[in-house]
């Protein structure tokens, strides 16, 4: 087994464009879950909105920048649709409604035929040519050995991580402001915040919409990186992968989503590659797991991460242990 190659691949994925997109989504979900205590199980719907906003707009002949605007506006509308009916209700309702709404949206996207606006299950391809036309990097491979990106990968990666840095700065600034203090108060005890004159509903709605827009940006980045959107990319598991990242990084911590995304993708990619290699060289007999099962193993891992972290290390990598201990009353 070529362990060096496995490691190099894992690092490449951990710092790659997809990890950047997940980090972006996680910054948004961290605002929901970590700062405000909202249980948004439909984050994938925001990502879908962003991805399809860009893809459909360009596919219909619009420019790429218009696609960004469509995606962002779509996410704002979606956030209001999710939030207005549910944010006054107990936390479980938001969870159930958002997961259901995500599935409804996916069903709608895939219900059309090949000639419909969203092109049904065929999805839309090649809508980001303008983005890659603006690529300042020359053709070639950037990196060392196997840890290297193509000029396209590097371009998406640079834009992606820059975006992550930018939104992290904005969110950290917001979290430090009195606005963020109110969010934390709401997370701790809604009624206490209300008794002190805070309009809890408006704050939750703001948090939901802003985090949702970040989710939409992440969806756009994913779509552009692949030059392809398809409804079945946006299964509910995607939301939970982002949840795993937020909890891994430490809910409510400033750099948690970023560190979480990098570590998450390293672990996932390493397991994936390691298992495939191990099957290939015969360490694991095909009767136990064959290579087609490896994709499923990834989600077994995500599930185990979610459970294990909440049970044994709820503060994640960067959260504060003391805060978690305070939960016990």
């Amino acid at each position: 087994m070529d362990i060096v190659a496995v490691l190099a691949d894992s690092f490449r994925t951990a710092f790659g464009p997809i990890a950047a997109a997940y980090a972006l989504a996680a910054v948004g979900l961290n605002l929901h879950f970590g700062y405000t205590g909202l249980l948004n199980f439909g984050h994938v719907a925001f990502m879908m909105t962003g991805a399809y906003g860009v893809a459909v707009t360009v596919d219909q002949g619009g420019p790429l920048w218009l696609g960004f605007i469509v995606g962002v506006v779509g996410a704002v509308v979606l956030g209001l649709l999710f939030g207005l009916p549910t944010l006054r209700l107990r936390v479980e309702y938001l969870a159930i409604v958002t997961i259901a709404a995500g599935e409804v949206l996916r069903t709608l996207l895939r219900s059309g035929g090949e000639s419909s606006l969203t092109r049904g299950v065929f999805g839309i391809q090649r809508f980001a040519d303008d983005f890659f036309a603006a690529n300042p990097f020359d053709r070639g491979s950037y990196g060392w050995g196997r840890f290297a990106y193509s000029e396209r990968g590097l371009w998406v990666l640079v834009i992606g991580w820059s975006l992550v840095a930018l939104v992290t700065l904005v969110v950290v600034q917001l979290a430090r402001s009195p606005w963020g203090r109110v969010l934390r108060a709401i997370r701790e005890d809604e009624d206490a915040a209300r008794s002190l004159g805070k309009n809890v509903f408006v704050y939750k709605l703001q948090s939901l919409v802003i985090g949702g827009v970040l989710g939409a940006l992440a969806g756009m980045l994913l779509a552009i990186d692949r030059q392809s959107v398809n409804p079945d990319t946006f299964l509910p598991v995607l939301t939970f992968a982002v949840f795993a990242i937020v909890i891994l990084g430490g809910p409510g911590s400033r750099l948690g989503p970023v560190v979480g995304a990098i570590v998450y993708w390293f672990v996932i990619q390493f397991t994936d590659r390691f298992l495939r290699e191990a099957i290939a060289v015969g360490w694991i007999p095909e009767s136990v797991i064959d290579s087609t099962d490896v994709g499923a193993v990834r989600f077994v891992l995500v599930g185990a991460m979610l459970m294990g972290l909440i049970i044994w290390r709820p503060q994640g990598l960067l959260g504060r242990r003391e805060e978690v201990l305070l939960d016990a009353d």
């Binding site: 203090r181 934390r184 997370r187 915040a193 004159g197």
Partner: peptide, 25 residues
């Protein structure tokens, strides 16, 4: 508000704070 400092518990109660608005925050 357990996971906030005692001081933050006090500050969050302040009325009509400009920084509590999203944009001015």
């Amino acid at each position: 508000l357990s996971k906030m400092s005692v001081l933050d518990n006090m500050l969050v109660a302040g009325a009509a704070q400009r920084g509590e608005h999203l944009l001015s925050g």
